[in-house]
Design a binder for these strands. Sequence first.
DNA 1: CAATCTATTGAACTACAGTATAGTAATTTC
DNA 2: GAAATTACTATACTGTAGTTCAATAGATTG
Lengths: 197, 197
Amino acid sequence: MAEAAKRKARLSPADRRALLEDAARACMARGGIREFTVDRIVAEAGVSRGLITHHFGSMDGLLVAVYARMYREWIEVIEAPRPGLSRLEAIIEALVSPELFSRDVLNVWLTLWGEIANNPVLREAHRSLYSDYRATIELALTEAAARHGRSIDAPRVAAAFICLIDGFGVQRCVEPSLLTEEDARAACRAFLGPLLD
Amino acid sequence: MAEAAKRKARLSPADRRALLEDAARACMARGGIREFTVDRIVAEAGVSRGLITHHFGSMDGLLVAVYARMYREWIEVIEAPRPGLSRLEAIIEALVSPELFSRDVLNVWLTLWGEIANNPVLREAHRSLYSDYRATIELALTEAAARHGRSIDAPRVAAAFICLIDGFGVQRCVEPSLLTEEDARAACRAFLGPLLD
DNA sequence: CAATCTATTGAACTACAGTATAGTAATTTC
DNA sequence: GAAATTACTATACTGTAGTTCAATAGATTG
């Protein structure tokens, strides 16, 4: 019935924001920044055009919210302990898990990187979050190095390792067939070599 | 004088195309895909709006031309022999040289990757060019492995190495301060370890 | 229960996107 | 040197972008 679409749901702001963030992310996963538009997102979410401005102030506000949510979920999976694995090994397994190593997730990241690089508002939001990510990787590296009695330049190794991870994202979006999850795991292990068991 | 701007230059199609490709690339370097618009590009090039359609048929046509030109110049630097260095070592040096390891160049790549991932027209153009790039890397790896008496799975190593390189691009655009050209060189050498002198 | 608050709608608005095309002028062709 | 060609300009056109805002209707308050 058509009148069903007319009913107003009136969610709590937190729920509505989450719903809009998910819709926006779905659009981005589907078609990159060109699908990140008011019309596409409200259609995906099944709400009216006015809601985005009401809850996020602007499209940049929504973009920042999507970034923050992606970041939070990424960190959550990365930091989840895995029985029998060291912190560093757990990170590698998280990276190649279906939760993170999917075309949808990585295409959102690729899109966000493009925006961070060129949109001052997102860039600003990025700075505050990104250092936590690096810190997590550095910690895992430092810990692994200590356990294997090696000394490393953790910040530099972390930066390079993050490059490798980001590169997986690019590759999966641009030419998915060339890099399986098994390839990615092998590349991580080759890169970190002596720090792993 | 204002009338100078009114004079019509009438270049050869090849020259005009090159000029428009450069202008488009400059816009992209400055602001990503959001600056890749008719108005910005013709302003940058100092020509009228109609010229893009006239020479490239559409914005997608220009996008493909920019990609092809970026690709050609990239390959040219990558493949240039460097006295005293093996093919593989020369590639590493090319990658960290100012010609390729600059924010402008890498931001154009980041933008193009985002488009390849989501724009079917560019994706199609990408497929035909990209395999040459991989082949170049694979050849250098195979050669280096042979010289050091090692056997490697060249396609897989090449794919992972390309990920690392792409990741440099992301990192340089998103958080430039964290990865110097020296860091990138060190990361490449660490990754390829036994294949280098 | 009345009053207030605010989540939501839907339309209006301005700006700018890419494309099409008619007209102009420089070059080439014969 | 006249005719044909085409690089180029300038403008018009249609679609869609993000934002603003008045009106509406659930929820909450007192």
